[in-house]
Design a protein around this nucleic acid. Structure first.
Lengths: 195, 195
DNA sequence: ACTGTAGGCCAACACCTGTTGACATGTCGA
DNA sequence: TCGACATGTCAACAGGTGTTGGCCTACAGT
């Protein structure tokens, strides 16, 4: 055995490093180029292996993307936070997630032209943002709309800052982003309903 | 002469109909599929002509896109509107533009994976939204940031509703969109600065 | 009626894509 | 030591892409 444990079924394979390298390269390429322009060949070259290895380990491009786009927003528990600070906290957290992880970017860029990626994005927000909003909102029936509106502003910010790179939006520092967007998120979360 | 005027230099060529058909088909394809998945062959098939015609009339794919993505937001003059209604008016107008014209969609879908399209999007907002915001804002130095923030919310709404199709956002009717997003735009436009 | 030319089609090119199978190498248990 | 299996490389495939040039056809101006 090359690893510590002796009786465990999950032994560390020698190929795990390669698998990880492929996944990292895939995330970077998908994030930078989108689904169709990110080629298996380019990903393999980045990972310093042959394109056929990608196929052996992940089956096909679709499955490779599915593996590379696995993502957890890691939303914090906000039930204890003072009500009027929630918007700012949520905004700050989302900015941090965008800045330090390629995965969301890969998902966003791909989702615009790829149906499967779009479906994944929908599930991500429904499964991860949905519950958090439901727990914070007075009337649970309003939760989906409010979560949707938050997605509107969060994704719009990411789109203009990281993808389209509109200069004034790129220029904002973290504090400014929280100060401007925080109240918007706050209103979508807890403001009086507007329908 | 086939047309009314006799001495005019701009005579209507027989190919004008074809040119227009190509442009319409191109807009639809770019809007539905994005830049790389919208193929010249598919566009030509939609326009019922040969792919080589597209090349003859527009040179190459890049120039075809440039011609198809020509867009005017047609922002109304808002200087006479009561200050607290401006956000709602602007929001309503933008929704209408999105709903009745493929071009913005083509631009958005392409801009996510195509540098030239992204640059075009930046120019669109700088040249068309910028001046309107400058005219409405107290301190002209704040105009770019405020226009950027508006872009953030406007594009985020379009992204989630028309591209990603998040169900709760798709379900909103026009009045609900204006009621929810109007105040946000209003605050970005005229609210106290938050930096 | 004749002819030049604009409008249109066809076939092909060079290239790139995802994907596959055959083959070499190295590692580890028996 | 030997053989089984994991790891990796190479070359090729079938199909799709933007793009090009040659050829046909029908109409406009004389």
């Amino acid at each position: 055995m090359t690893e510590a444990s002796s009786t465990e079924a999950a032994k560390a394979r020698r190929s795990d490093a390669t698998r990880a390298a492929i996944l990292t390269a895939a995330r970077e390429r998908f994030a930078a180029d989108g689904y169709e322009r990110a080629t298996i060949r380019a990903i393999a070259a980045d990972a310093n292996i042959d394109p056929s290895m990608v196929m052996r380990y992940y089956g096909n491009k679709e499955k490779l993307f599915a593996a590379a786009a696995e993502f957890d927003l890691r939303l914090p528990d906000l039930t204890g936070v003072p009500r009027d600070e929630i918007g700012a906290r949520l905004t700050g957290h989302l900015v941090d997630r965008w800045e330090h992880d390629d995965t969301l970017m890969a998902l966003l860029r791909a989702a615009v032209t790829n149906q499967a990626a779009a479906e994944r994005m929908r599930r991500l927000f429904a499964a991860q943002l949905g519950p958090v909003v439901t727990a914070l909102v007075a009337d649970p029936a309003e939760a989906p709309v409010r979560a949707g509106l938050i997605a509107t502003q969060a994704l719009g910010f990411a789109l203009t800052r990281y993808v389209l790179c509109l200069p004034p939006v790129v220029a904002l520092d973290r504090a400014a982003v929280v100060a401007w967007l925080g109240p918007t998120i706050q209103r979508y979360l807890a403001g009086e309903r507007a329908e």
